[in-house]
């Protein structure tokens, strides 16, 4: 039995589940980055979500927006590299128009779609460039189509869309970031940032289903 929506406190707890999951995924993310990048993605994400854990434990939140901005700022100011700017921007800018109290399917869609626009503006990448956008873009589209459904029904489908997007990065040639110099040699390997994007949604879903 999952949740139709989450309160601010439940959302915070769900984000703590995401943080713990991302920290535990350090090894596979770094391994993926070693194949096509510089091998630091897992270390960076683990550092970022450790900072998130700390900020979430330290503070009380009076709105979802404040909660997500706190997550984004913690990521942006602790990870560094491309992924700090990108995942920090996703949470900080995806937070701007969230409803105050209730994390619903609509809130999920607002978060992903506003975040998507901001990430594209910041990083100037497009879907197909073999980045986290290839998981984020289909997830955002899927979320927009599922706002009528309860969160626990919609979210698994959003995760599935992100997974298809992540898998598709294996057939893409990197044209952004440090992996781009690999060109054709990046074929066959998934994009590490796309794996992170999928995992964030997957852990969020696990938390929402377990409530």
């Amino acid at each position: 039995m999952g949740q139709v929506s989450l309160t601010i406190r439940q959302t915070r707890d769900a984000l703590l589940v995401v943080a713990a999951g991302m920290i535990a995924s350090e090894g596979i993310l770094s391994e993926a980055d070693r194949a096509i990048g510089d091998g630091d993605h897992g270390v960076g994400m683990a550092r970022g979500f450790t900072a998130v854990e700390k900020k979430l434990a330290e503070n009380e939140f009076s709105s979802l927006s404040e909660l997500f901005i706190t997550v984004g700022t913690a990521l942006m100011m602790s990870i560094g590299g491309a992924s700090g700017a990108i995942f920090g921007t996703l949470f900080r800018e995806g937070a701007r128009n969230l409803p105050a109290n209730e994390f619903t399917s609509t809130a999920l869609s607002i978060f992903l779609n506003d975040g998507l626009i901001a990430v594209q503006k910041r990083g100037k990448a497009n879907p197909g460039d073999k980045t986290m956008l290839d998981a984020l873009f289909p997830a955002a589209k899927s979320a927009a189509a599922l706002i009528e459904y309860p969160l626990d029904v919609g979210l698994p489908q959003v995760v599935a869309a992100a997974e298809v997007g992540m898998e598709a990065t294996k057939n893409m040639v990197a044209s952004m970031g440090r992996a781009k110099t690999l060109g054709e040699r990046s074929l066959g390997y998934p994009d590490p940032g796309a794996i992170s994007m999928l995992l964030i949604l997957r852990f969020l879903n696990e938390a929402a289903q377990a409530k």
């Binding site: 510089d38 630091d40 550092r47 990870i79 560094g80 590299g81 700017a85």
Partner: peptide, 11 residues
């Protein structure tokens, strides 16, 4: 100075 091989953070 960022972390090893990672750009520094904005703050």
């Amino acid at each position: 100075a960022g972390n090893i091989f990672a750009a520094p953070t904005p703050d």
